[in-house]
Write a protein that binds this DNA or RNA. Structure first.
Lengths: 111, 111
DNA sequence: ACATCATCCGCATAGCCGCACGGGTATCGG
DNA sequence: CCGATACCCGTGCGGCTATGCGGATGATGT
């Protein structure tokens, strides 16, 4: 197996930065919603996730700043979608797999 | 694609909880180290990752509380390893993929 | 028995982060 | 032109958390 060196602290931070973007309930659900529905506006996302529009707006702002989502403006409505270069492994393996896991829980729930 | 319902807030939390465990440089590197080397003690981990022993101890405590790692005591030395039931998708797809990504960065820019 | 070492624990602190709030901008309907 | 809508932004606050420090525990060596 992996004969590679361990990640440096710097690489650890990079890893973390991308991961911590999904390590928030709102953002994770935003990303998943956009993975499923392809394109949604802020208001609909707020309704769909039962979250305030501010929270959605803030979450999307963060994700956009990180380049994970893009927006398209149509009139006064802003539609969001996953960015063109949204990391495929993240999408395929992490997002969906973890959603799976979050439904069929791991048996380790400990105190 | 769009066949499933969106994750509830509760499921979002569950998703997040497992994810946020890796969303910390120290913990991510700890997990990766244990994925590579199989079994390590606190002191060696501290040296390998250039982190204080306290930080390592704390990180491992958190991971242990979550059931992601286990420890084996041999004399006064405590050896840690990934837990038996360490979520395989997490290991296969997330940990390794993300380490990959952290080395061959995504071109994240913003407008 | 005593000193030493590896590790854990409790506590305190400092930094970060998500979110609500108030105010702003662009767009649409009438 | 005017009010309403959809959204964005800067700011501030409350809560969480990583980490350092002092002390405790238990194993080891002499």
């Amino acid at each position: 197996m992996a004969r590679e060196r361990l990640p440096s602290a710097e690489e650890g931070d990079r890893l973390t930065s991308v991961l911590s973007l999904m390590a928030d309930p709102t953002r994770a659900r935003l990303l998943y919603a956009l993975d499923v529905v392809e394109e949604l506006c802020v208001g609909d996302l707020a309704i769909a996730l039962s979250v305030s529009e501010d929270a959605v707006s803030y979450g999307l702002r963060v994700l956009r700043t990180a380049g994970l989502v893009t927006r398209r403006k149509e009139g006064r409505i802003v539609y969001y979608r996953l960015a063109e270069g949204f990391p495929e492994p993240l999408r395929q393996h992490c997002l969906r797999q973890l959603i799976e896991m979050s439904r069929a829980p791991i048996e380790d729930d400990d105190s």
